[in-house]
Design a protein around this nucleic acid. Structure first.
Length: 739
DNA sequence: CTCGCGAGTTTTTTT
DNA sequence: AACTCGCGAG
């Protein structure tokens, strides 16, 4: 036990050894949060205060759950399998499988990922003949998920206006469709489990008695429903309920957009009368300059719980800032810098290239590829989201659950077997009349459509029969052949990679079996393991990226970098409109979340931090001219070393060609010209103004002309004023001074 | 019914 | 720039 607690600082020690009461640990970036959480669990078990079966630990990513499990297994000499460690979604899946009857679900229910859900909504709109212009599927998806995450079933939604009433109606239809098809989306996993526990007292009591210690990681990212779920399990904080140990950092809350509610931290403190609030402020990760910059940035946010990170590791190097002429220029510089670091002995895997949005990775990848630097991109298209994998999974899903209409619709005519829109329409209509799934409706259909569809149904039945006794990998292998998927991709010109991915699916199957056997908790019955595998595929979209072990530069969004750390970090694209993102700039809440994102980005670095931005950038096929990010101005000048001459005139003026620090190569295209051509506007506006030109406005301050429209007295220009926003101004009216 | 082309739209972030 | 969707020819 003593060695368990060795090397903990005072606050960490205090947190780990708190009595079994509710506790809130405010853990700053790099302050040893994961260590405290895992050591706490180990300490509880080792000191005899809790048995492993009494522990429930909730994380946000599967990766974090796995890591926690591994660390605990290393710390404790006993079997840790009886602990429940997982993501909210993973744990809910487990509960719903165990109590599927009480939850009103068949045992082999399927899980819809976001893409599946969107497809299901589109299909719903089509069958109901709803105008998808008026109800854009994406928007509806967002609406439905939002309601579920707030805990509202359709009848509970307050709809004051006609539009909302109609959307609620669609929400209800969507629910009915899901129930009919035995499928469950992400939000439904949570809501369904919550309702199960709320309504079923014996089950609720059972779990309340079982879990004496509930520990939550990344508590700042919980949404309303997740918090209520935790409260329910902890018996609302009543005497005799479990003790809740929540670890989080309000400054790192970056998922507000998908319903995360930082307010949960304050609510928790109040509602559970939390006596133990501990701040972990000593940072073991970053050098002083980096930390000072992070502190200075986050200080601009209001309404924080308050925390200031410090380190005893010394100031370290200054933060390097680079201004590029264009995004390509930025990428070239960046790759050169990376090569220099590697030449000096740095590990590529210790260098991270961070950006705000996935679209930005393209330029970086291009330059890395050209320079022959090995790299690895996180995020983007995940393994289980590739179309060929989705197709294969759809066949597997039909085997496990033929009523899954989403899966049915996906592969009924893939590979093409002469079942067109006509036949499908007839089938959909019939399915509505009989109120059965597409699959179950097929026998009701006569005529030509009936014949081809019956053939497809027979194919699926054969698949089910022939695979009933097969181990998972062989099962998948058989399906790939018998469905015709392999043959189809073999004949396709670009199909080679897809074939390889399909083979990799076999590998994923084998891995899953190996892990499931170790886990021992496998469902009984035919194809039950298959259902487990499919749930796994939905919940864990797959970090199946190339060459885990290879020494490669790491590329990812700031979001996916959360929780990670690197010796060297580059944050690129620090421009107004990009980071902070233009969609978030207008409301204060959104801007503060962007700032937390910046805080997360900066605190990923241990030794060296680079920040860069470009005067012009290709986005959506158009050249845009951005001002440099306000977050750069929030870093005290004394911490910064400019690699390019500081450009005080404003922030990046696009018209100021040649300001790329001399890095801009002769012959590189001049972005303003490209923009003019792309937009088809006149090359020169009156008064010598042009696109990319920096201008000053009496009220809005400095800005950059990003677009122009019309001519003569109608001539308008769009100007990005940074903090003051992006505005269209009439040239005839607005007083603009070139800068 | 299938395939190919062109128009139109998109993108912030993800369990 | 890349992807999706709808339309028309075969």
């Amino acid at each position: 036990m003593s060695n368990l607690l060795a090397n903990l600082n005072e606050q960490q020690h205090q947190a780990v050894t708190l009595p079994s009461q509710h506790a809130l640990i405010l853990a700053g970036a790099g302050s040893g949060k994961t260590r405290v959480l895992t050591t706490r669990i180990a300490w509880l078990v080792q000191s005899g205060q809790a048995s492993p079966a009494e522990i429930l630990a909730v994380t946000f990513t599967n990766k974090a759950a796995k890591e926690m499990h591994a660390r605990l297994a290393a710390m404790l000499p006993i079997n840790t399998r009886s602990m429940w460690i997982g993501t909210f979604h993973g744990l809910c899946n487990r509960l719903l499988r165990a109590h599927h009857r009480d939850a009103g679900l068949p045992q082999l229910f399927q899980i819809l990922d976001s893409g599946d859900q969107l497809a299901a909504i589109k299909r719903l709109l089509k069958t109901l003949n709803v105008d998808d212009e008026k109800f854009p599927p994406r928007e509806l998806q967002h609406f439905i998920n939002g309601q579920k995450e707030a805990g509202f079933r359709p009848h509970a939604v307050e709809a004051w206006d006609e539009f909302t009433r109609q959307r609620v109606q669609l929400y209800q239809e969507y629910e009915a469709q899901c129930q009919r098809e035995s499928v469950v989306d992400f939000a439904e996993l949570l809501l369904r489990t919550y309702e199960l526990l709320e309504r079923n007292e014996p089950i609720r009591r059972h779990y309340q008695r079982r879990f004496r210690h509930i520990l939550v990681d990344e508590f700042q990212d919980t949404n309303v429903l997740q918090y209520r779920w935790l409260k329910l399990l902890a018996d609302e904080g009543r005497e005799g309920g479990a003790s809740l140990f929540c670890v989080g950092d309000d400054d790192q809350s970056i998922y507000r957009f998908r319903g995360a509610e930082v307010g949960n931290m304050r609510d928790f403190e109040r509602e559970f009368r939390v006596q133990n609030v501990i701040r972990l402020e000593q940072n073991y990760r970053s050098r002083g300059n980096i930390l000072d910059a992070a502190n200075a940035i986050i200080r601009n946010n209001s309404d924080r719980l308050g925390k200031n990170l410090w380190t005893d590791q010394g100031a370290g190097e200054p933060i390097r800032v680079f201004e590029a002429f264009s995004d390509a220029d930025e990428a070239r510089w960046l790759v050169d810098e990376v090569r220099g670091l590697v030449r000096d002995g740095a590990l590529r895997s210790e260098i991270a290239l961070l950006y705000r949005s996935n679209a930005q990775s393209r330029v970086l990848e291009h330059q890395l590829f050209t320079a022959g630097v090995p790299y690895r991109v996180y995020g983007g298209l995940r393994f289980f989201e590739r179309q060929e994998i989705k197709h294969a999974l759809a066949y597997l899903r039909l085997i496990a659950n033929p009523d899954d209409d989403t899966a049915f619709a996906r592969v009924v005519n893939f590979p093409t077997r002469g079942i067109g829109a006509r036949s499908l329409e007839a089938l959909q209509d019939a399915a509505r009349t009989y109120n059965t799934s597409l699959y179950a409706t097929v026998p009701h259909l006569s005529g030509k459509a009936g014949t081809v569809l019956a053939q497809f149904v027979r194919l699926v039945e054969d698949l089910r029969r022939d695979t009933a006794r097969l181990p998972l990998p062989e099962l998948i292998d058989h399906v790939l052949d018998a469905s015709g998927l392999r043959a189809h991709y073999k004949s396709e010109k670009e199909g080679q990679e897809r074939l390889e991915n399909l083979d990799e699916l076999l590998g994923a199957g084998s891995n899953f079996v190996a892990e499931a056997q170790a886990d021992a908790e496998v469902l009984a019955g035919d194809h039950a393991l298959l259902a487990d595998f499919l749930a796994h595929a939905s919940l864990e979209a797959g970090d199946h990226q190339a060459d885990q072990g290879a020494d490669a530069v790491q590329l990812m969004t700031v979001h996916s970098a959360k929780g990670l750390e690197f010796n060297v970090v580059f944050v690129s694209g620090l421009e107004e409109g990009l980071f902070p993102h233009e969609n978030s700039i207008l409301e204060a809440e959104g801007l503060e979340e962007e700032r937390r994102l910046m805080y997360v980005a900066v605190t990923r670095a241990r030794e060296r931090l680079y920040l860069s931005f470009a005067q012009s950038r290709m986005l959506h096929g158009q050249t845009r001219y951005n001002l440099r990010s306000r977050f750069l101005e929030e870093i005290p000048a004394g911490l910064v070393k400019w690699l390019t001459p500081p450009n005080p005139r404003s922030m990046a003026g696009g018209a100021l060609a040649g300001m790329g620090g001399g890095y801009f190569k002769p012959g590189a295209s001049v972005a303003p010209v490209a923009a003019r051509q792309a937009r088809g506007t006149s090359a020169h506006l009156p008064n010598g103004l042009r696109i990319g030109q920096s201008v000053a406005h009496a009220k809005f301050g400095q800005g950059v002309i990003v677009a122009a429209e019309g001519s003569g007295s109608d001539a308008k220009v769009q100007i990005n004023f940074g903090p003051a926003g992006v505005k269209w101004l009439l040239l005839a009216v607005a007083k603009l001074e070139p800068v």
